[in-house]
Amino acid sequence: MKIIKLVWSYLRIGIANELQYRVNFFIQLLQSFIALATGLIVLWLVFSQTTELGGWSQPELLAVMGIYMLVGGVIQSAIQPNMQRLMNEIQDGTLDFALTKPVDGQILISIREFRFWQLTDVLVGLVVIVIAIVQLKEQVGILQALAFIAALILGGIMIYCFWLILTTTAFWIIRIWELVNLFQGLYAAGRWPVTIYPQWLRIGLTFLVPVAFAITVPAQALTNRLTPLTLVEALGLAVLLMGLARVIWRMGVRSYSGASA
C-alpha cells in the first residue's frame, strides 16, 4: 500500500513537473511521427516486393510495429530514465541517499523517474495496433486479447529486469554507457518479428535480450499464433529474470562502496 502511494507521489509530481514544458510535448510528438513514418515507408517498401514476410502479412507486421512503438514508449518513459539515473548515482555516489531510505532500494530506484511526454510513443503505438487489428482478416477474440495483454505485461517485466541487471553491473564496472547503446541497437531488431531472423540471432533476441518476448510474443498472441506453451515459457522466464535481477541487485548493493567523498 505504501509502495502504491509512493509510486503515485512520484508519478504525480513527475507529470506535474513535465506539464510545464509543453514544447517537449510537440517535439516528442514530432519524433513519434517521424519514427512512425519511417516505419511505414519501410513496411511499404517491403510489401511492394512481396505479399508476406516470413509468414507475416501486411496488417500483422503493422501490428508488430505498433507493439514495437508501444513497448519502446514504455521503456523510454518509465524504465530507461530510472536506470540512467541509477547509473549516474552509482557513478557520483548520490545513490547513498536512496539506499538510506526506509523503502526497498530496488523498488525505490525503479520508480523515481517518469517521462510523461514519451507516452506519445505509447499512444501512437496503440493507434497503429488498432488500425492493424481492423485490417486483420481474423477477428481478435477475448482470449487473444487477454493473452496479448498478459504477454505484453510479461514482456515489460522481462525488459525491466534485463535493464536492471545491465545497470546493476555499474556497481562493478561503473561505466556502462556502451552496454546501453548495445541494448538500443538490439531493441531496434524488434521492429520485425524475430521469427524472420536466422536461428542464432533469434535465440539471442529471445533469451539474451528479451526483445522477442516483449514484442514478437504479444504480436503472436494478437495474430492467433501463440501457443499456451509460449505464454507459460514467458511466465517462467519472467519469474527467473525477476529472481536473477534481485540477486544481482543485492550483490551490487553489497559491493557498493559509494564514490568516496
Binding site: K2, K5, L6, S9, Y10, I13, A16, N17, D92, G93, T94, D96, F97, T100, K101, P102, V103, L108, A261
Partner: peptide
C-alpha cells in the same frame, strides 16, 4: 530514524522545486 547529509552531494531533484522534494520525502518516510 536516521538521516545522512553530505555537503558535497545533493539528494534533491534539480528540476523540481524543493516543495515537491519535501512531498516525495513524506511519501518515502510515510
Amino acid at each position: 530514524q536516521i538521516t545522512l547529509v553530505m555537503g558535497n552531494r545533493s539528494q534533491m531533484s534539480w528540476d523540481l522545486p524543493a516543495l515537491d522534494s519535501f512531498e516525495l520525502q513524506r511519501a518515502i518516510y510515510g
